[in-house]
Each structure stands twice: as C-alpha cells, then as structure tokens.
Simulated assay, not measured.
Amino acid sequence: MPVLHSIIHKIDKKPDGSPAILHVSSGELVESEARDDLIQQLNESYNAKTGKAWGFFHAESGAHPFSGWLGKYLAGTKDFTEFSNVAVEHLTRLMEESNLSIGGNAIFCHYLQGMTDYLVIALVQETEAVTMTDGLTLMTIRRLDLDHIHLAARINLSEWKSNPKSRQYISFIKGKNGRRASEYFRDFIGCQEGVDGPGETRTLLKAFSDFVESEDLGEESAREKTNTLVSYAMAQAKLGEPVTLDELSEVLDDDQPKAFANFIRDKEYGLSASLPPDKKTLNKFRRFTGRIDGLSISFEQHLLGSKVEFDEVGCTLTLRSLPTQLTDQLKRAAA
C-alpha cells in the first residue's frame, strides 16, 4: 500500500465552548516505517468499523467547497500540503459551529491500493499508554488512538474520476451518538448518502436464497455456496472494497461463472453491479441444517423469527411462506 502523500494537523478544541486553535503542519510526513505503520493501522481500523455509510459529493458550492479543492490538487494546480491546509481550516470553522465536537489530529493521506487511488481523512484523538524504557522503568506516553476512530471518510479517487455519476465512491463513519455528532464532518467532506449498504446487502442475500431455491441444490452444496458468499463478502469488507456481482458469481460456481449474476439481472432485484457489503448483515446470514429419518431441513439464519419460528420448549419448528412447489405436492398428497 504505497503512501503517496500524508500530513497531520492538530486542532485544539475543548467541549467547554472555547475557540478552536488550529496548529498547521509545516510539511508532509516524511517517508518512514513509522509513517507506513500508522497509515496501515489507520486503514485496518477504518475497515473494521461497522455502521459505515456510502455516498457521493454534493455539487461544489460555497457550502461544500471540499470537492473543488480536491479536484485542483488532483489536477496539479495545488500541492498536497496546500490542499490539506485549506481543507483543515474549513474543518476547524465547521468544528467551531458544532457544540458537540472536540478537537483532534486531522490525518490526510493519499495512498495507492492495487491500481486504485484513495484519500482517507480521519480525526484521531490521543490517549495515554505505558511503555518500558531501556532502563527497565515505566513511562507514560501519549499516542494516537487508532482503535477508536469515530470521524473518518475515505474517497475512492479512481472511481470518482472515472465514474463521476457513481453514488458510492465515498464511505464514511456514521456517528453512534446520533447524526448530529458526525454531521459537521460529513458537511466538511460535502458528502450525501447515496447507497444503503445494509439494505443492498439484505437484497443480495435475498437474491442468493432465491437462487439456491431455484437451483434445487442439495444440502451440502447449498451450505458450501453460502459459506463461499459470506467468506468473499467478508473479505471484501475487510479490505474496504465493494462486492462485485460478476466476481461473486464466478467465485460461487467455476463451471457456470455467470449463473448467479444473470439470475439477479433477469429477476430485476435492482442491485448495482457493485455494492458495499455490510458486515452486521452478513454475520446474521448463516445456514442451519439437519437430517433425520428421511427429513432434511436447511434454512438461513436470517429467516429465524420471520419465516421460521423455533419453540425451544417443545423443540418444534413452525414454517411460513412455503415454496409453491412444496405446497402443490402436499395438496396433491392430501387429496
């Protein structure tokens, strides 16, 4: 993950309403192992965060100037330090207006992952840590708290440049303490929510369940494909990358690499060619299976409580919305 440019500015702001004080860095972080480790940890922490949203830029305006500054930097009319300086000044002004915000270290980093350019911006707090000195004594130090990042955004610069009509080239952390706590940071980026990650993931999993049912797959094959889908989507989430339907379709079936993708398109589920995977939704998508005396039962975990109800005391299952093919067979047998 080559780091192209990176810089850290510091904003001092207390929650007591006192003015924010901006400390602008004199230049970029120099190339070093410490810098690369910092950016690597920042990205790992960001990727691991749940509750992220995906979106795109508002049209450039006085209220949303960030995309214009970023465009000038990418065009070469501003260098990275100039771009970060004007951006962090804007962030400080917005922070002043927010009674819920406190200061922090504003990290800007332009890096390359594979063939894709990214810009990540995060406001990172500091915390105390204890270290051992060479003289075997303990010393308290201040460190960047990369484990608890609450305000951050990542922009896929390559997608923004190549596909400006995309609605998911920006991802950002949605505040756990409510929208207002992170709204000023989203305004700073000039981002509007464009794709519902959890909703898209649920639709993908619904399409997969329908696909498995339509293919009339055996228990073992269905379980294997379910594990393959979840593993692939989780791996993409860990990398901060979207799930690509064509690639997922190939992963699911080497012999028929287009089968699942064609099924989704033919049935018009309304999914984009790529979508941001939501880890919480994926974690609920596990398959329960069992077989005894000619009875075989298999269903996804997310159906528990809706189409499948389990009575723990009586050890019974109640099934709803049975497949038409099965109900037709039962009606014929009952007749």
Rank of each mutant, 00 (worst) to 15 (best):
K10L: 11
K14W: 08
A20F: 07
A20S: 12
L22R: 01
S26R: 13
L29A: 04
S32D: 06
I39E: 03
I39S: 02
L42Q: 07
E44A: 12
N47R: 08
A48E: 10
T50P: 01
A53V: 14
W54I: 01
G55Q: 05
A59W: 00
A63T: 09
G68D: 03
L70D: 03
L70F: 02
G76D: 03
T77L: 02
K78N: 12
D79C: 09
F83E: 02
V88L: 05
L94H: 07
H110I: 05
G114K: 08
A129L: 06
T131N: 10
G135V: 06
R143M: 15
L146M: 14
H148G: 01
H148A: 10
I149D: 09
L151M: 10
A153Y: 06
I155M: 05
W160H: 14
P164M: 05
I170R: 01
I173H: 07
K176P: 00
R180P: 00
A181D: 12
E183I: 05
F185D: 03
I189A: 05
D196K: 02
P198E: 06
G199A: 14
E200L: 04
L205F: 04
F211K: 06
E215C: 12
L217I: 03
L217M: 14
S221R: 15
Y232W: 05
Y232M: 09
Y232N: 04
Y232T: 02
A235E: 15
Q236A: 10
Q236F: 00
L239N: 14
G240L: 07
L245S: 05
S249A: 09
L252A: 02
D253P: 00
D255Q: 11
P257L: 09
A261K: 14
I264T: 11
K267D: 12
G270F: 08
P276F: 09
K284A: 13
G290Y: 01
G290I: 03
R291G: 00
I292W: 10
I292S: 14
S298Q: 11
F299L: 12
E312K: 13
V313G: 03
G314V: 00
C315V: 15
T318G: 02
R320N: 12
S321F: 07
L322V: 06
P323T: 07
T324P: 02
Q325Y: 07
L326T: 08
T327Y: 04
D328N: 13
L330W: 06
R332Q: 10
